[in-house]
Design a protein around this nucleic acid. Structure first.
Lengths: 125, 125
DNA sequence: CTGGATCCACTCTGATACTG
DNA sequence: CAGTATCAGAGTGGATCCAG
């Protein structure tokens, strides 16, 4: 038997809750944006510089989604040239803890997983 | 400042670790399969029945990926008709805890998020 | 500086039909 | 029973160009 009967939290309602959060953070950049904003207010360009590889388009899309979900605030300063600052909301900050748990799991088990993949691949040509 | 300086776990190496795990579990069915197998050995059809909406094709793909990653074992019994049983490995079981944390976060904050989305949508027609 | 608009390549998923 | 094969639709991400 399992120690985690709480898997009902994942399977409950046919998985709608977990599906919702994965739709939110399961994409390529969302968690990186959230982690980068952890504890700091930051403007668009700085955010882009701190996330290597993200394009303007994807950064725009990602912060828009996060703003819509209420996980960050977007502040436009009425200046020329424009200055826009992003900051996590209280709700957004609470996401960091479970996300870090997941990252810890990834770091801890990546070696095992990569070994398993390698051995699987030689057995299934 | 933030309580979670451990965000370096997410941002470290440019996000490769977190990207890896999201590629693994960020799809539509993987976490549901893992949660359904929690603590039980189960065969293909039973698994499919317990995960409403999953197609044969997607269940096959999902368990194959999980097998390759070493998160579950696939046991083929040499019988007719065939019987194939799936079971989480030790590594697979360790994934459940962080996944449940994420699901808890989703359940806790879904009301807030849905309210935020609704208010965002009326303001951005 | 911020980010909208467009185009394209690729992937993910589902439906359907077939098989040892 | 437990898959494989094929096809089509939707979504995602990247590159590029343009604008307030």
């Amino acid at each position: 038997m399992s120690k985690y009967r709480s898997t009902c939290l994942i399977r409950g309602d046919g998985g709608r809750a977990i599906r919702g959060i994965l739709d939110r953070i399961g994409d390529k950049w969302t968690l990186l944006v959230v982690a980068t904003l952890d504890g700091e207010r930051m403007r668009f360009t700085e955010l882009q510089q701190r996330i290597p590889g993200i394009s303007q388009r994807m950064l725009t899309r990602t912060v828009r989604h996060l703003e819509r979900d209420g996980l960050l605030t977007r502040t436009v300063h009425p200046e020329v040239p424009p200055r826009v600052e992003y900051e996590l909301t209280a709700t957004g900050r609470t996401l960091i803890e479970p996300a870090v748990k997941l990252a810890e799991w990834a770091v801890d088990h990546n070696p095992d997983i990569e070994r398993s993949q390698a051995s699987y691949d030689v057995k299934h040509p």
